[in-house]
Write a protein that binds this DNA or RNA. Structure first.
Lengths: 160, 160
DNA sequence: AATGAAAGTCGTCGGTT
DNA sequence: AACCGACGACTTTCATT
């Protein structure tokens, strides 16, 4: 067998993030459209100082993006589905690739356990479900759940 | 048994969203900090017109927020865990409540199937896992997976 | 429903502490 | 690392179409 060296992702390095950075991150997680001036008022810093810090957080990869959150139902996607996949042997890559190619899938993760993939998708109707699942069944066993409610809707990381 | 009337959430109503709105939503999903002026340039509309439309999308609940996305690992949460819960009888409410109360949990959903809750959390170390799972085990059976990678990192709803 | 113009606010840059 | 001041850009409001 080939000598496969495993290269772990760079281990966790606590970039030097201070309490002020955490406050800025908390504010921006709650409202990404706050002006730099308003952020400055909230943390008692001038706008240029805030701009510097935010730019540093972006460039160091702490902030990875700013996104409007939309309600899929309001946009004609009333059905949200979570699918777990237990892959057949040697089909891991194919499942990753398929997930990337199906636009209705808004996230897919690889994890430990038998069902080592899961993905979430938003559909215009339940009719859309079967043809999508049929894309995956050749390469693994799927378990599908319709999402009803969100006891905890997506919320920010607590940074206190 | 009491007469329990089930009130469904208001059925999906296609709010009048036109192609221009969808373009604005696509832009704001990709970059929530775009200025109204820049949005206007991209969709060939004046800044006040964009401001009107965006405000309408916010007030009608299509846009539910603007959030900075952060990398949990860069902030000292190198462990991401997905937990499914198969509740014991009559313990559904208690599980919802617990999920709300554990700050490391960043989302929790109720769904169809035997494991009818799932939640995701970010931890500073695997040591944190056991005490959190122990909060839930009195009320249901948990299945835990460590998340490795994201074949599809969170991405916007396709609105074409 | 969108535009153009005006007033106030904001982002950015250079220089300073 | 943060502040200040200045200029250009942006946001917001209002009158107009």
């Amino acid at each position: 067998m080939a000598n496969r060296r495993i290269r772990p992702e760079r281990a966790y390095e606590p970039k030097d993030i201070d309490a002020l950075d955490l406050r800025l991150l908390t504010e921006l997680q709650a409202d990404a459209r706050l002006s730099l001036a308003e952020l400055g008022r909230r943390v008692a810093l001038s706008a240029p100082a805030v701009a510097d810090r935010v730019q540093r957080l972006e460039e160091s990869g702490v902030i990875t993006g700013y996104h409007a959150e939309v309600d899929p139902r309001a946009l004609g996607f009333p059905v949200t589905v979570m699918v777990r996949v237990r892959p057949a042997v040697r089909e891991l890559q194919r499942i990753s690739k398929l997930a990337q190619e199906v636009p209705q899938i808004v996230e897919c993760y690889r994890m430990t356990g038998e069902d080592c993939f899961y993905f979430t998708m938003h559909l215009r109707a339940v009719d859309e479900l079967e043809p999508i699942l049929d894309l995956f069944t050749p390469y693994g066993q799927t378990t599908t759940s319709l999402i009803h409610t969100a006891p905890v809707p997506r919320r920010p990381l607590p940074l206190d």
